[in-house]
Simulated scan of single mutants.
Amino acid sequence: MGLERKIDQPFFKEVGEISRFTARFFREVTKPKQEWDEFINQCYWIGYKALTLVSITAFIMGLVLTIQSRPTLVEFGAAALLPSMVSVSLVREISPVITALICAGKIGSGIGAELGSMRVTEQIDAMEVSGTNPFKYLVVTRVLAATVMVPILSSLAIGISLYGGYLGTNIRGEVSWTLYVYQAYDALSYGDFLPSIIKTIFFGFAIGIVGCYKGYTSQKGTEGVGRSATTAVIVASLLVFILDLIAVQVVDILGLT
């Protein structure tokens, strides 16, 4: 019992601290005088940092998924359904989740390390002394930027992965771009696109909050900075899977599948 209590207490304490940090974010974001210049700057850097990796990964996902799925469909005489199957899989699940995981690794760790370095070098303390609100300037802008940019990156990943699927379809066959687009989009509906985009908003928010929390509360010098970056990736990735599970259940209950 004693060991279980020691294990559970840090976990629930962490959950409580993140909840308080999130509540403070919502209080600060509603206050006047937003830092729009810093928000736009963070949108640029967050999108720029992850764009190349997201694009390459999305293209490979679409290509590999198509190549791997084709033999099974051919075996059942359903090769014509390949564009439809690939498009539904990519739009509903694969592209949003993989994009969020990439952003958790790239963006979450970057924010954690950056804010962690500012904390241990007392830059955040200096901002508080000078009368600046460091939470609003550093945390609110980064969380909002991640919330905005992850859905945009996910939408871009969907388009690139569908093009990768088109190339994969033409490796063993010959399908025109017009026919491929018609078959791919004919199998899709707003019930596929809307939940996909909405859940990436929550993915981006979770990634931003976790990265900022880990960095903003970093301690123990340079060792703490590294730990903040590492744990930000782990926790953000876990939250992505949990939020995805919740989103799937909600969509199924609403009958959008």
Rank of each mutant, 00 (worst) to 15 (best):
I7P: 00
Q9V: 06
F11W: 11
K13R: 11
E14D: 06
T22E: 04
F25W: 05
F26K: 07
E28D: 11
P32N: 06
K33M: 06
N41M: 12
N41T: 10
Q42R: 11
W45C: 03
W45A: 07
L51P: 02
S55G: 04
L63F: 15
L73H: 09
V74Y: 10
F76R: 12
G77W: 05
A78L: 15
A79P: 01
A80N: 12
L81V: 04
P83M: 13
V86A: 04
S89M: 15
S89T: 09
I94H: 06
P96S: 14
T99S: 03
I107A: 03
G110I: 05
L115S: 00
S117C: 13
T121H: 01
E122C: 02
E122H: 13
S130A: 11
G131F: 09
N133S: 07
K136T: 03
L138R: 01
T141A: 08
V143S: 01
L144E: 04
A146M: 03
V148Q: 06
V150P: 02
L153V: 00
L153M: 03
A157M: 09
I158Q: 03
G159H: 11
G159C: 00
G165H: 04
L167G: 02
I171F: 12
R172A: 13
Y180F: 15
L188G: 08
L194T: 14
P195W: 15
I201F: 10
I201N: 07
F205I: 07
I209Y: 08
V210G: 05
G211N: 10
G211E: 09
T222H: 07
L238T: 05
D244T: 02
L254R: 12
L254N: 03
